[in-house]
Design a protein around this nucleic acid. Sequence first.
DNA 1: CGCGGCTTTGATGTTCATCAAGTAAAGTGG
DNA 2: CCACTTTACTTGATGAACATCAAAGCCGCG
Lengths: 225, 225
Amino acid sequence: MDHCVNCKFRSILFDKLNDEELEIVSENKRSFVVPKGETICVAGQPINEFVYLVEGMVKLQKINKDGRAQIVSIARPLDFVGLLTVFSNQNYQYTISTLTDSRFCKIDISVMRRIAASNGQFALDILKYISKISDEIIRHTYAINSKNLRGRIAMILLDFANKHFDSDNYTLPLSRKELAELIDMTPENVIRILSEFRRDDLVNVKGKHIEIQNRKLLEKIRDLG
Amino acid sequence: MDHCVNCKFRSILFDKLNDEELEIVSENKRSFVVPKGETICVAGQPINEFVYLVEGMVKLQKINKDGRAQIVSIARPLDFVGLLTVFSNQNYQYTISTLTDSRFCKIDISVMRRIAASNGQFALDILKYISKISDEIIRHTYAINSKNLRGRIAMILLDFANKHFDSDNYTLPLSRKELAELIDMTPENVIRILSEFRRDDLVNVKGKHIEIQNRKLLEKIRDLG
DNA sequence: CGCGGCTTTGATGTTCATCAAGTAAAGTGG
DNA sequence: CCACTTTACTTGATGAACATCAAAGCCGCG
């Protein structure tokens, strides 16, 4: 049942593996569950395993010298959490923590390397994903930085609706402070602008519950901000 | 003479190729020279070739909707210019232009793919570089954004000295406007702060010529800014 | 010579961070 | 279940950092 052959993610990354290789992965992988709010790995720690998210939601963050956290990315299943740094660095670049109860699989990194070295198609698939994830992080970072505060809030609210929840009605898995860390502003201003959006009937905000009321205008604010 | 076997870059990326594969690369590659100020490729264009810089210096930039340019990275030889997007996207993500007279080699992208697919070690080497370049771009972007304007200027002056010219005495290949695009500020403020640094005998600035006079203090401004 | 682009400096205005203080919510121990 | 503490959230007032605007000097080029 939890054999990799039946895994719904097989087609995403492990499609090019033959039966024998898949068997090696299956024998070496371990599945584990982590409750909300826990830290999976810490920036600077050595990487021994290739970890990826099967269910749930996590944040990748880095801590500044002055102690302030910055969230680099929110990852969902298929986003292959550790992927980005796994092949260039010996150590994790980012600290990864769960935002919701989550399930992971991990495989010894040397197993992955060995298979990739002997199976170029598999390596190319990994390559494709690394490039894609990197591109997206870079694009996201530049998008955030080129917008004013209102535009950032509008963007992130729409992003959650579009990419994560597929609905204009959802519950944020982030605190106001974490929202601020994700879009590079202060918690005070996150709150201020959310209140403003509520006053203007753009978004119905009740604590962490979000309901987008005027999508058109919100998109305009995102695009013009 | 211009056979890839003798290329000084062979050991960087093409080290894992066997003689036959190297011969294929050598037969398919073309070397070409581009003068300063020319554009190599434009964001959005389809990628047909794997291009890398042999000599010179280039900038990777993207253009905002509102027409403002942002420089994502300055690349030197060994930085494998197009690498980042080549394997995830059909189209270039960034516009690449020469900052100095430059020499490139290009190879049909399908040749690269074919060799990578059959040579996992080679694919892993590419993987390693993509990860490294991505990490550096992300790190650089976050470093810039977490600093005040003085800190950004100090950082970029030191970066050029350390990474690009290996000397505290060099000539910038960028205009004030391009400097501004690289570290996300206005040309006016770039100039203002450079003038300030000159007044304080931190840096001797004469047009594009830079001479770092007080490295210790400059590093302090970078690290505390 | 004169035009246009790059550079420089000063004056002004806006955006946003910081500070402060108060309210709600959530966890803790009796 | 209730006092208590702590943490998250919210709003307003202030100030600093930075962008924008304006104008002048410089330089290369036709």
